[in-house]
Design a protein around this nucleic acid. Sequence first.
DNA 1: GACAACCACG
Length: 553
Amino acid sequence: MLTQFQWLHSELSNVCKSLLRAKQLHVWLLKTHLSQDPFYATQIIRLYAINNDISSAHHVFDKTPTRSVYLWNSMIRAFAKTRRFGNAISLFRTMLESDIRPDNYTYACVIRACADNFDFGMLRLVHGSAVSAGLGLDPICCSALVSAYSKLGLVHEACRVFDGIAEPDSVLWNSLISAYVCSGMWDIGIQMFSSMRLSGKKPDGFTLAGLLVGIADSSLLSIGQGLHGLSQKSGLDFDSHVGSLLVSMYSRCKCMDSAYRVFCSIFNPDLVTWSALIAGYSQCGEYHKALIIFWKLNMEGKKPDSVLIASVLASIAQTANVGPGCEIHGYVLRHGLESDVKVSSALIDMYSKCGFLHLATCVFRIMPERNIISYNSVILALGLHGCASKAFVIFDEILEEGLVPDEATFSALLGACCHAGLVKDGREIFQRMKDEFNIKARPEHYVYMVKLLGTAGELEEAYNLTQSLPEPVDKAILGALLSCCDSYGNSELAETIAHQIFKTNPTDNVYRVMLSNIYAGDGRWDDVKKLRDKLTGGLKKMPGVSRIEGSYY
DNA sequence: GACAACCACG
C-alpha cells in the first residue's frame, strides 16, 4: 500500500494538466502544514504554472517564509514559461537584492526568458551578470547562452560562448549544432556534428533532433535519409522525439510514403507524432489522407490536443467541406477546447473558407481570449466574403484592445480592399502600415497594391509602384500587374512587364503563356507563334474538378 | 530544474 508521502510524491510528479488537482493538492498541503516547506511549495508553484494559474503560484511564493534558491527559480520559471517576461525579470532583480544568490539554473532560466522575449539588451546584461557571478564558464549557463544568442540570430555570439569552453559537454555541442542549423547554416551544423564525433562525444537524440530540423525541403532529402540511417544504427529511432522529427522531416521533403513508414515503425506513437503526420499530409495537399489519419487516431481512443485539432481544422479548411469541420467543432465543445485561442482561430478560418461567414464571426465573438492571429483570421474571413468595411471595424478593435497589428493584419486588410475594390482605403492603409506601424512592406503587400490599382485601371500608378522597388522585383508582383494588363487589353505594357519577368525567370513558362494570351486577345498572332515556339515541354494544365457535398445549412 | 518535437492568420 502507498504511504501518504509516496502518494503525494507521485501526485506531484504527475504533470497532468488539471487545475482542480493542483488546487486539491494545495489544500491538502495547507491542512498538513507542509505547504510552507520549500520543496512542496516549489512543486505546487510548478503545478499552478503548468495550469496557467500564475496568481495562485505567486500566492504560494509570497506565503513561503523560507525561500530557497529552488523556490525563487521555480517562481521565475513560472513567470517565464507563461510569457510574463517583465515579471520574471523584476523577480530576478528582487532576488539579486535579497540575501539568496542566484545559481546557474536561475541564470539559465532568465537567459532563456530574454531570448523568448527577443530582448537582446537584457540578454547582454544578464550574460554580464552571470560572468561576474563566476558562472561565465558554467556548462548549464553556457548552453542556455548558446541557444539564446542563436535564437536572436546572433550565431557568432553563440560561437564565442562555445569557443570559451575548453571541453564542451554533449549538451553544449547539441546547443551549438542546433544554433547553426536553426540559423540556416546547416552545412556548418553538419561540420560541427563531425567535430563532435571526432572529439569523442557520442551523438544522442538531441543531436539528431537539432540536425533533422535543418532538413528544410526535398533538396536536402539525401542528408535527411543519411540521418535517418544513422538514427537506426544507433538505435535512436526509438526515441519518440527523433521519431516525430523524422516524420516531419520526410513531410517537409514531400515524401509522405517514407513519413508514413517511419510513423508505422514507431511503437505507440505520441500525439506530437500523430500531429506531425497529419500536418504533413495537410501540407502536401493530401487533405483527405490527413482526415483519415485523424479518424484513425480517434478509433484508437487517443485524445487529440489543441495543436492537433488546429492542424486538422486547417486541413478541412483547404477541402472547403464543412461537414467534418462541424464534427470537429462538436468535439471541441464537448472537450472544452473552445477557449483555446489556436483552436478558435482555426475554426474561424475553417468556417470562412467553407463559406460560412456568420459561423466564423460567431466563433470570434464568443472567444474568451483573442490574440492578433484570431483578429487576423476574422479580418481575412470578412475580406474573403467582400465585407471590407467590417474588416476595418475589426482593425479599429485591435487598436482599441491595445494589440499590435502585424504584417498579416495588413495583408488581410489589403486583400479585403482588393476584393471590394476600395482603392482609396487600400492606398491609405498601405501608407499607415509603413508610417504609423513601421512595418516594411513585403512582396505580398505589393502584390495586393498592384492588384488593387491595376484592377481599378490605374495601370500607370501600379507600374510606377513596381518600378520603385529594387531589382529584381518579385515575379509575383509583376505577375499581378501582367494579369491586370490582360484584363485591360494593354499589350504594350504587358510586353514591358513580361520581359522584365523573363530577365530574372527565364524558364518560367507561366508568364509566357500569359503574354501569349494577351497577344492573342489583340490579334497579334505572329507574336503568339513566336512566343509559343519558345515554350519548352511540360506544359500541362490540371483539369479543374468541382464537387458538391451534402448541404449543412 | 539546462539543450530538442507537432500548431491557428498570410
